[in-house]
Simulated assay, not measured.
Amino acid sequence: MNEPDDDLVRAVEATLFASETPLTPEELSRHLGGAPVKPALASLAAHYAGRGVHLVERGGRWHFQTAPDLAHLLRREREEPRRLSRAAVEALAIIAYHEPVSRAEIEAIRGVQTAKGTLDVLMEAGWVRIAGRREVPGRPTIYATTPAFLAHFGLTTRRDLPGIDELRAAGLLDPVDAAYAALTGSEAGSAASESGAEE
């Protein structure tokens, strides 16, 4: 494969740097007059590997982010991280592992009712979106995660979510949850509440 043109690489770099939101290759290409940007993205990702910032792809969108080992240098001491309620953490994990899901399906997995405000909090955070309506009687709203969710948790795709074996190895599975998962084959159900517990 030919090396991308230096001017194109610089144009892609400048566009991504100036953009307020991550961009897909198609959006970049349109912005740059239809230029083939994928080779330039690969070149930039290689160039920034090992530097203070990395060019990363999250959910099909590209953006610059601080190298993980340096993120602590940029964190403001007065900044309080958003704390999600246990209900919100569980709902987020269920949506991530089972999307698209309705509120009734979330409640069935959790075993308790989910307040509308819980889903509103997740949508305000930009991690969950309305993905349409289920084609069943009542046509309930269904929810899915967003590219911002993937970016926040450092995932390229949902396939990068930890599985039950990884969660167990990390000591994040309660023995009762693990036993329930083994009995029901509900890997994601137990992983759901536990993956969010790291928040």
Rank of each mutant, 00 (worst) to 15 (best):
M1Q: 03
N2H: 03
N2V: 00
E3V: 04
D6L: 01
D7A: 09
R10I: 02
R10E: 07
A11I: 01
V12Q: 01
E13N: 07
A14L: 02
A14M: 00
T15A: 08
L16Q: 04
S19W: 00
T21G: 02
T21P: 02
T21N: 03
P22I: 00
L23F: 06
L23Q: 06
T24C: 05
E27R: 14
E27P: 07
R30N: 13
R30K: 14
L32E: 08
G33V: 01
G33H: 05
G33A: 03
A35C: 04
P36N: 14
K38G: 04
P39M: 01
A40F: 02
S43I: 04
S43E: 14
A45G: 11
A49I: 04
R51T: 11
R51E: 12
G52I: 08
V53C: 12
V53D: 12
V53K: 14
L55H: 00
V56K: 09
G59Y: 02
G59H: 03
R61W: 04
F64R: 05
A67E: 12
L73R: 15
R75E: 15
E80K: 14
E80I: 13
E80R: 15
P81A: 09
R83W: 02
L84C: 05
R86M: 08
R86W: 09
A88C: 10
A88K: 10
V89E: 12
E90H: 11
E90F: 11
E90L: 08
A91L: 12
A91S: 15
A93Q: 14
I94W: 10
I94K: 06
H98K: 13
H98S: 11
E99C: 10
E99S: 14
E99T: 13
P100Y: 07
V101H: 09
V101P: 08
E107S: 10
A108V: 00
I109T: 10
R110N: 07
R110F: 03
V112D: 00
V112L: 00
T114H: 01
G117K: 04
T118H: 01
L119V: 11
D120N: 04
V121K: 09
M123F: 04
M123R: 13
G126D: 05
W127L: 09
V128W: 01
I130V: 11
A131N: 06
R133E: 10
R134H: 08
V136I: 05
V136F: 01
P137S: 04
R139K: 06
P140N: 05
T141G: 08
I142Y: 02
I142E: 10
Y143A: 07
A144I: 10
T145E: 10
F149T: 06
L150N: 05
L150K: 09
F153T: 07
F153N: 07
F153K: 06
G154W: 06
L155N: 10
T156M: 13
T157G: 15
R159Q: 15
L161K: 09
L161G: 05
G163M: 10
I164W: 08
E166K: 15
A169D: 09
G171M: 00
L172G: 06
L173F: 02
D174H: 13
P175N: 02
D177P: 01
Y180L: 01
A182Y: 01
T184F: 10
G185P: 08
S186G: 15
E187D: 15
E187F: 11
A188H: 12
A191Q: 11
A192P: 15
S195L: 12
G196Y: 08
A197I: 09
A197S: 15
E198Y: 10
E198P: 03
E199W: 14
